[in-house]
């Protein structure tokens, strides 16, 4: 029971990280290997807001999110825009290179030290039936689910969501309909990277920030997105909960070392059974 609760809690946070990756892929057909590095930046943002100014991570979300949204737009205008018309393999080289560049810059600026936001509530926990959940984790989980709900509404109900789905389903068809594709791409990057601005500060209160933390989450987000079907919104939720659950159950039954390998075992399994992922690839 404990493993299930913490697995679902972790899974919902993974969903918030993976949804940005899948959104950007679904709309722009580009795989951003530097996705986790923007999470890392947002985590540092939350950490320094707390350590330098004593800003609570929940409040820091409000400051960090717009900043990383702008970073997302800047990334589109300064780099991704030019990478869209080159072959896939070169696109990968561009975002992989960016990922390494950001890791090394973080290492230079912030050193390799592990940092964590510690507050009075850090060690507090709440009982849910027979299981308990740490307060910072509960906050991150609730925030994540709310944001996912909000994103879902935007995607289904707003004009922006409609044109995003349109671009995802036919780029040329959308352009012929008068839709400004590059404006939609800008929004995709702003939201895709911006969602990390919500995740980052809250996660800096749960686990250590260091320059390498992003790479781990890029990998997990990849597993989730591939399991759920590239570009699929509901697939992200299913994939995240699956990965979160499997990890924590493996940790409870076996060991932490085995738990770390679980996402990749799931990935292999899914690719063997259903190479296209569990859900479809288009954004509905």
């Amino acid at each position: 029971m404990q493993a299930v609760i913490s697995g679902l809690a972790n899974g919902s946070i993974y969903a918030l990280i993976a949804v940005g990756l899948t959104l950007v892929f679904g709309i722009m057909r580009i795989i951003n290997f530097a996705h986790g590095e923007f999470l890392m930046i947002a985590m540092y943002g939350g950490f320094f807001a707390w350590s330098a100014f004593g800003i609570d991570p929940v409040l820091a979300v409000v400051i960090v999110t717009p900043v990383v949204m702008l970073i997302g737009v800047g990334l589109y205008k300064g780099l991704i825009r030019f990478a869209l018309n080159v072959p896939d393999i070169n696109q990968m080289a561009v975002t992989l290179g960016l990922s390494m560049l950001l890791q090394h810059m973080a290492l230079m600026m912030f050193t390799g030290n592990n940092r964590l936001i510690t507050q009075p509530r850090s060690t507090a926990s709440i009982a849910i039936g027979p299981a308990i959940i740490q307060v910072p984790q509960l906050i991150a989980c609730v925030a994540s689910l709310s944001l996912l709900g909000l994103l879902y509404l935007v995607l289904r109900r707003s004009d922006l969501g409609l044109v995003m789905r349109a671009v995802s389903q036919s780029r040329d068809g959308a352009a012929l309909s008068g839709i400004d594709i590059s404006a939609v791409y800008k929004w995709a990057m702003a939201i895709g990277i911006g969602s990390l601005g919500v995740a980052g500060p809250l996660m800096a209160a749960i686990l250590y920030v260091n320059p390498m933390v992003g790479a781990l989450f890029t990998l997990k987000a990849f597993v989730i997105v591939i399991v759920g079907g590239l570009g699929s919104f509901s697939g992200v939720l299913i994939g995240s909960l699956l990965v979160g659950l499997a990890e924590s159950i493996a940790a409870a039954w076996f060991s932490a070392a085995i738990s770390a390998a679980v996402p990749f075992a799931i990935l292999l399994l899914v690719l063997l059974i259903r190479p296209e992922g569990l859900m479809s690839a288009r954004m509905r």
């Binding site: 409609l162 044109v163 349109a166 036919s170 068809g173 839709i179 288009r282």
Partner: peptide
């Protein structure tokens, strides 16, 4: 067209 969108959504887009 946008195959996963409805007729109305295709028009509105």
């Amino acid at each position: 067209l946008f195959p996963d969108c409805t007729v109305t959504e295709n028009l509105v887009a």
